[in-house]
């Protein structure tokens, strides 16, 4: 066993059936796929050893993504492009590996800022504007459960930017969130509140997709 592990960071997308998996189920799916690739992965210590993986922030059930990432610890260097292809072949429907690159040292994980794309169906400009107003209103609050208690929390500090995507073919919003700081509601909770507020008009919102993570 080499003392200097080789760490590969893989970016992958989740769409179609893969958006209906919980974070834990997705970890299991990815772990199995990694075993099937035959890559020389390192394992964790303890009674239940597993492939040594580090994941980005959990993707809420129902959200698509094209910026998920995981770090895979390997025994020896491998060709990143070949590893990406090998993993892609082993993943079930809805998972696509987009990129693989080696990482040096232990760089901090990204994910305290997230960019989302909210896609509405054609002709749903009104609903798109309703959502833009909801997210853009600094006084807007949502109901959050914490420690068994419900409380209203302002979303203002968690929203960095809300803007229409002018280049999109149907009404689309780009929203930047901040999360992970004390008292900030997560992007997942805010978007759930948006959908609840829409009621039956939620059918106008056809895709919630995480498109970028920043630190």
């Amino acid at each position: 066993m080499s003392d200097t592990p080789f760490v590969l960071e893989l970016t992958y997308a989740r769409s179609g059936p893969a958006i209906y998996l919980s974070h834990l189920d997705a970890i299991d799916v990815l772990s199995r796929a990694i075993r099937r690739t035959g890559l020389p992965y390192r394992i964790t210590q303890g009674c239940h050893p597993r492939p040594r993986l580090t994941f980005g922030p959990p993707l809420p059930l129902g959200h698509a993504s094209r910026c998920e990432f995981l770090r895979l610890h390997l025994e020896r260097p491998v060709d990143p492009a070949e590893a990406a292809q090998a993993l892609s072949r082993q993943l079930p429907a809805g998972f696509t590996v987009l990129e693989a690159r080696p990482v040096e040292g232990q760089p901090a994980l990204t994910g305290s800022r997230l960019r989302y794309r909210l896609v509405f169906r054609e002709g749903a400009e009104d609903t798109c504007q309703t959502v833009a107003r909801f997210l853009g209103d600094p006084s807007q609050t949502i109901l959050v459960r914490r420690d068994g208690k419900e409380e209203r929390v302002g979303i203002g500090p968690a929203i960095i930017a809300v803007a229409p995507d002018q280049g999109a073919s149907t009404p689309t919003l780009l929203v930047d969130f901040e999360q992970g700081k004390q008292g900030l509601p997560s992007a997942g909770k805010i978007l759930t509140a948006v959908v609840e507020a829409l009621g039956d008009r939620r059918e106008d919102l056809i895709l919630i997709e995480r498109i970028a993570l920043f630190s």
């Binding site: 209906y20 099937r36 079930p92």
Partner: peptide, 8 residues
């Protein structure tokens, strides 16, 4: 996911 198929 119980109803969607697409498994390995």
């Amino acid at each position: 996911a119980r109803y969607l198929g697409g498994e390995v």
